[in-house]
Design a protein around this nucleic acid. Structure first.
Lengths: 215, 215
DNA sequence: TAGATTGTTAATCGATTAACAATC
DNA sequence: TAGATTGTTAATCGATTAACAATC
């Protein structure tokens, strides 16, 4: 998929994932949607919706709106989730376990193909989906022998191990990391990192709860 | 805590949680930090750091910088996590279980005081920390009888139940929701909601991995 | 006092929105 | 053709950054 321009902001992509989620929901009841309707669900303006979508192409029909199932396909194509992307989980504590045992959590387009830990007591155990927990030192070998690309890792080790583990992954060819730890990774600019920090989000929530503007 | 102005953007609060995390890390080695050093770790400018902090007050010393432990205390105060905030978990599937059994995940300032589910097979079970899984219909009663405020819920039900469950919580007095489901909640403007969507974040990661600008 | 770094103003940059020509 | 809604331009708004006076 080629885009008109590649100065795309993070916010556009974040909204794109939201559009997708909403469209899949609305699809149960409707076949078409226009930018006004979509903007209302999104709490934004219709101009925002049209601008966002037009970043990637002309998907609407003037006078009518957007075909929902077509738009879903397009967004899935943009996000690269209309095919299977292989991911490995690194760190099989409570978080890693939750992810590996919860088929739904990753959503469409992602498949867990390997689980790694450094704990000798865990290595060798077979967990959900017939995946064996492997030694984290074997990531390189695993990637080389795997039939297909494995570029993405979900980092679910303890905070203290995050930087070291991430560096190892990068050395072994991993290109993208979903960082589930609280640690702010410092990696080369060729590595893509996205962070999920539950405690930080809870702090944000707490701030807004305490500072709700009275209107 | 009173602020100079209350037109505070979401981004400022997000960065505030990052500053806090970094400061706690740097505190192991240093007592003081200046805006330049902090900006380098944050991948931003020193002006950004000073501007962000000055939103809340004058915490630095000209010619020197910021006292780390003082700044940590201040940010914790701003975020309201220097005291214990009670939270309940609603939905005790894989996600709720991960959170309730993982003391570290919520971080400083938060305490799980109740766990709720609608599944009769789960209700009554005692899980980690001597908390009993309660019937989700008993949230109101629980809040009224609890010695202390319970305003915050972590919503960890399945997507299909998210909107209904959230509405019930709001009816029963909950004011802030950390939404761990993929569903975009539609609630009154007096309710504070922050979303964590693992699959959406993975989609973002996948987009950037596939569209890494070649430099 | 001289050197350093803050807090803040003003300039710049980027993102959102209003408005409308294009077109189904 | 008339009505509706897109895609896009230009105007507005807000966030970031450069620059510097204030001051430790």
């Amino acid at each position: 998929m080629k885009f008109k321009k590649l100065e795309i902001s993070e916010k556009v992509i974040q909204r794109l994932t939201e559009y997708l989620s909403i469209l899949k929901d609305v699809q149960k009841y409707e076949n078409e949607i226009n930018s006004i309707e979509l903007s209302k669900i999104m709490n934004t303006t219709s101009a925002q919706v049209r601008k966002d979508l037009s970043t990637f192409g002309d998907f609407g029909v003037r006078g009518k709106g957007y075909d929902i199932s077509k738009l879903i396909e397009i967004i899935e194509d943009i996000l690269g989730i209309n095919k299977v992307n292989n991911v490995i989980i690194v760190g099989h504590g409570k978080m890693g376990e939750m992810i590996s045992s919860n088929r739904n959590v990753l959503g469409k387009g992602f498949q867990i193909v390997g689980i790694f830990d450094k704990d000798k007591n865990k290595i060798g155990k077979v967990v959900s989906d017939n995946l064996e927990i492997r030694d984290v030192n074997g990531v390189k070998e695993f990637r080389e022998n795997f039939c297909g690309e494995v570029d993405t890792a979900i980092l679910a080790v303890v905070k203290e191990q995050a930087q070291f583990a991430a560096e190892q992954l990068v050395k072994n060819g991993i290109k993208a990391i979903l960082n589930m730890t609280t640690y702010k990774l410092e990696l080369g600019s060729d590595i893509t990192v996205v962070n999920i920090d539950i405690s930080a989000k809870l702090q944000e929530l707490n701030f807004w709860r305490l500072n709700k503007e009275e209107k």
